[in-house]
Design a protein around this nucleic acid. Structure first.
Lengths: 146, 146
DNA sequence: ACTAAAAGTTAGATAAATCTAACTGCAAAA
DNA sequence: TTTTGCAGTTAGATTTATCTAACTTTTAGT
């Protein structure tokens, strides 16, 4: 239950399960391995860990699914990825490299930095509109958290 | 001699040796350990590696020095650090966090991304002045390469 | 239905980075 | 000058993440 201590590697596996399920509806060990550039036994071991922590479910010799908690955590990580990729693209980085670097950055940045990047990427709400019309008052502080 | 395969961790140690020598003139094992938040034996092992690769020099029971090559590599890493820290500060991140996150980012970003960040941080040359006067024509493609 | 190939798993090896514990060398205080 | 304590080192354990090789299960072709 304690997903606080997820390593970078486990975050990557969890995120990839989520992405493959969004893309294919099904996350197969083989595809996870291919997508992350590792061999199947590495995936198997990672899944054992994620199952222990209660983030994924898997019946033997079958595809991987996310628990409710896993879904929540994976969505958070994927949001970070999307935010960072958009950020890098905005800086002029090519899509492929932006994707790769976002993948590295998503595990290491502090909440503060992520917040500032978010402000930079989407000044859409308060900031940019404040210059033209009455601000619509964003409720909380950090939007991308959920 | 083959410093191409420096791990993140070794890059951190090398950079810290450089920083301590710039700051104190002397890089002691104890101070390296304290600065990086590890114990002395970890530093000792890292120094063994860096000596093998030919980036540092050290007479037993004494302070650590950089070889010429080590100096060169360390300076490169430190430059990345400074660039990234400045970048984060420009985004509004506090200095302490900028320093910490720069330290993580400096090992993982691609040359392309570093180049774009450099363009963002110092549009001093071609870009900003291009808007006012005749562009001075940046020579190559990627500025941050050196 | 049987067999062959593909997908998944398990076991054990390797590499990196850390730690603790125990040992060595040096230097300052007594 | 002797000792005591700090700085440095070495040895060995632990953790994480990967791999290869060998085994098992499922699936698909015939």
């Amino acid at each position: 239950m304690d997903h606080t201590k997820l390593t970078q590697s486990l975050e990557d596996y969890l995120e990839m399960v989520h992405m493959l399920r969004l893309a294919n509806g099904l996350a197969r060990v083989k595809d996870i391995a291919a997508a992350l550039g590792v061999k199947m036994p590495s995936v198997a071991k990672a899944m054992v860990e994620l199952k222990k922590i209660g983030l994924v479910r898997q019946e033997p010799y079958s595809g991987v699914e996310l628990t409710e908690e896993g879904e929540r955590v994976a969505a958070m990580i994927l949001n970070r990825h999307i935010l960072l990729k958009g950020f890098l693209i905005k800086l002029g980085v090519s899509e492929a490299i932006a994707d790769k670097d976002a993948c590295s950055m998503e595990h290491i940045l502090s909440a503060e930095t992520l917040g500032k990047i978010e402000d930079f990427v989407k000044p859409t709400d308060a900031i940019s509109s404040a210059k033209k019309l009455k601000p619509a008052a964003k409720n909380g502080k950090k939007a991308g958290e959920k």
